[in-house]
Design a protein around this nucleic acid. Structure first.
Lengths: 162, 162
DNA sequence: GTCCCTATACTCGGATAGCAAGTGTCCGAGTATAGGCGG
DNA sequence: CCGCCTATACTCGGACACTTGCTATCCGAGTATAGGGAC
């Protein structure tokens, strides 16, 4: 089981976008430069965020991406599902309906107990992600960021938005 | 994000093995036949379970697999980690240490807040899986299995162990 | 009748191809801006 | 000096190669069994 790298990138991008003044937008190329990742590939994931309504994209000069709503209203789950897709990690293939001890499909009502248990675990995962927002990331970040790093990031953004 | 099919197969196999009398063992080929899955590929995952100490393998005639300990002492997490590997789904690549606003690696102490949040979610997932055992699956199964299916399975196992 | 030996058939185990999804990249469509021109 | 028009440069968006890891398979090593023979 592996989560796409895009999830990490998207979350970092959301925290950066949350720091951009509302009247500005930040292009994908700048976000890629800031994080040191391939711009073209990051764009792919930003498009996913746009499709999910988490960010809005503005075309043309001085365009770019910005958050569609306050950071406190964007949960980590929103971002993860947007990038990774909403299909659950565990997919029951109903192998109980195959093999010599199986019955016609009509006879099976509930999902099997394994599927239900795996579903509960995945639900717990989603619940944890739903309980935290981009705003929470920012407050946590503000507590343990190196002041010099914060300064460098601030000056960089000044230039990027100019 | 996708969980290997082997997880589903392994869990089903464990429930079946839990029903095998302790003095018997069930070969991989029989388990594959019962579930209608490719035998050679299922064997690969059973080997993973054996490496993790969840099942024991007995070579030679009348050999096969059996559970290494009571079903109540095997958690779903044990099985999932054995098949899927213990590496977490979310891997932080420390992109905060790249790009123009980064500092020397030495300056970064804690993992970033994103990594911590994702870790908490994954912890919740693992905790949920850890709280349930193969024995729990069996009791749930006994409640909602079709009696005819149970009968067919029982007679099949009689033959398989003969 | 009992014990031992041998040959057999069955088991697991790791090493080997094939394929799908994630990874990385590119170029084209569309738009707000900026500058120049005319009034 | 102000407004309009045009050309430009910049943005996103979807379509195209490549690599990693999951899927699927095979054959070889090892062992408990079962049968036959000797005592």
């Amino acid at each position: 089981m592996k989560l796409s790298d895009g999830v990490e990138w998207a979350l970092h991008c959301c925290t950066v976008l949350a720091l951009v003044p509302p009247e500005y937008a930040l292009p994908a190329a700048k976000l890629a430069e800031f994080h040191g990742v391939p711009a073209a590939y990051l764009a792919k994931h930003l498009q996913a965020l746009a499709r999910a309504g988490i960010v809005v994209s503005l075309p043309g000069a001085k365009g770019g991406y910005k958050l569609s709503r306050p950071a406190a209203e964007i949960t980590l789950l929103d971002v993860v599902l947007a990038v990774e897709g909403a299909t659950p990690a565990f997919r029951c293939t109903e192998i109980r309906q195959r093999g010599p001890a199986s019955l016609p499909a009509k006879e099976y009502g509930l999902p099997c107990s394994i599927t239900r248990a795996m579903g509960r675990a995945e639900q717990a995962w989603r619940e944890s992600l739903r309980s935290e927002t981009i705003a929470d990331l920012l407050t946590a970040l503000s507590h343990d960021i190196n002041p010099r790093a914060a300064m460098k990031a601030a000056t960089w953004m000044q230039e990027a938005l100019a």
